[in-house]
Amino acid sequence: MGISPKIVPRLSQDRGHANHNWLKTFHTFSFASYQDPQHEQFGSLRVINEDRVLPGTGFGTHSHREFEIFSYVVSGQLEHKDSMGNIEVLKRGDLQLTSAGTGISHSEKTYGSKPVHFLQIWSLPSVQRLQPKYFTRHFTDDEKRDTFVRIVAPVDAEDVLKDSREGAGPAPVQSPLTLYATLLSDGKSLTQSIKGSKGYIHVVQTSGYNTKAATGAAIKVTGAPGVEMELREGDGAYLFFEQGGDLTVENIGDKTAEVLLFDIE
């Protein structure tokens, strides 16, 4: 296939980060007061924020347009309210996707007595001025154990429910990207085919907020013989392929690694 892969690290301590007391956050790409021209977006992928929000607080009502916005809940509970009338409490395993289209307003706040840890991800839609829509999918830990589960996929991809607010299978995104998730046990490895020319991998920082060099779960990412990299919690990497290829992820640590993998066309 003429594969010529390249793996470029995006280390956890190099991400933008801020501690606002009520919110502890990391930014993979330029966001809010963190601006880095070397990390603005990657294909249609525009935002990966890893947020921790204290109880009784959150993001008040604010507006968006022309973004695909999805939240991946790691721990705690997140209360979502929006101008389309959706009110929902999201928990671990939930994947919520809002296609903002011509415009929506929403709020995202911690629900209950424990902090919420979630990843907020934005992508750029392929078509503008679409009608806003809202979707929720749930994927259990057992479903994600030692396999890559497709949790977000392009709206025209196979097995995608385009209009159902809830249902089985991946949430439909109006962007040319697919998102996989896994809980990879120590000693286990997975190989996933990447169809696009690029990808991005992120190891969720499950062991706690840490602005220094990454610790915790460890994986080795291999794109081809001799093209490999070790990553730990909070670390990520840009993936480049000529015409797609296979990516192998191996857990080389002593604890489960929670991993998100983007296939970007």
Score class of each variant (00 low, 15 high):
8 V>F: 11
12 S>G: 15
12 S>E: 12
13 Q>F: 08
13 Q>N: 12
13 Q>R: 00
19 N>D: 15
22 W>M: 02
23 L>F: 01
26 F>E: 02
31 F>K: 05
32 A>W: 08
32 A>K: 02
33 S>Q: 13
33 S>P: 10
37 P>G: 12
41 Q>T: 07
42 F>R: 01
43 G>H: 08
47 V>G: 10
49 N>Q: 01
49 N>C: 00
50 E>K: 04
52 R>M: 09
54 L>R: 10
57 T>E: 13
58 G>T: 05
59 F>W: 08
62 H>G: 07
62 H>N: 02
62 H>F: 11
64 H>W: 08
65 R>E: 15
71 S>I: 00
73 V>S: 01
74 V>W: 06
75 S>W: 00
76 G>H: 06
78 L>E: 09
80 H>W: 12
80 H>S: 10
83 S>W: 11
86 N>Q: 14
87 I>E: 15
87 I>L: 13
88 E>I: 12
88 E>A: 14
88 E>L: 12
89 V>I: 15
91 K>M: 09
92 R>S: 14
94 D>H: 09
98 T>H: 12
98 T>V: 15
100 A>N: 07
101 G>T: 00
101 G>M: 04
103 G>P: 06
103 G>L: 01
103 G>N: 03
103 G>I: 02
106 H>F: 09
107 S>V: 04
107 S>I: 03
107 S>L: 05
109 K>M: 11
111 Y>N: 14
112 G>A: 06
118 F>H: 10
120 Q>C: 03
120 Q>I: 02
123 S>R: 07
127 V>H: 11
128 Q>T: 11
130 L>W: 01
136 T>R: 14
137 R>F: 06
137 R>P: 06
138 H>C: 02
140 T>C: 12
140 T>S: 15
140 T>H: 12
142 D>A: 15
145 R>K: 12
146 D>K: 00
147 T>N: 09
147 T>M: 09
149 V>Q: 06
150 R>M: 13
153 A>M: 04
156 D>A: 03
157 A>E: 14
161 L>C: 08
165 R>I: 04
165 R>S: 13
165 R>G: 03
168 A>R: 09
168 A>P: 08
169 G>C: 00
169 G>K: 01
170 P>Q: 05
173 V>Q: 02
175 S>V: 02
177 L>Q: 03
178 T>F: 11
180 Y>M: 09
182 T>K: 11
182 T>A: 12
182 T>S: 15
184 L>G: 10
187 G>R: 01
190 L>E: 13
192 Q>G: 12
193 S>V: 10
199 G>L: 03
202 H>R: 10
204 V>K: 05
205 Q>E: 14
206 T>D: 14
206 T>L: 00
206 T>K: 07
210 N>P: 03
214 A>Q: 08
219 I>N: 00
220 K>C: 10
223 G>L: 01
223 G>K: 01
224 A>D: 13
228 E>C: 06
230 E>P: 04
232 R>W: 09
244 G>N: 11
244 G>C: 09
245 G>I: 02
250 E>P: 04
251 N>Y: 06
251 N>M: 04
252 I>Q: 07
254 D>T: 06
255 K>C: 10
257 A>D: 02
258 E>D: 12
260 L>E: 06
261 L>S: 00
265 E>G: 08
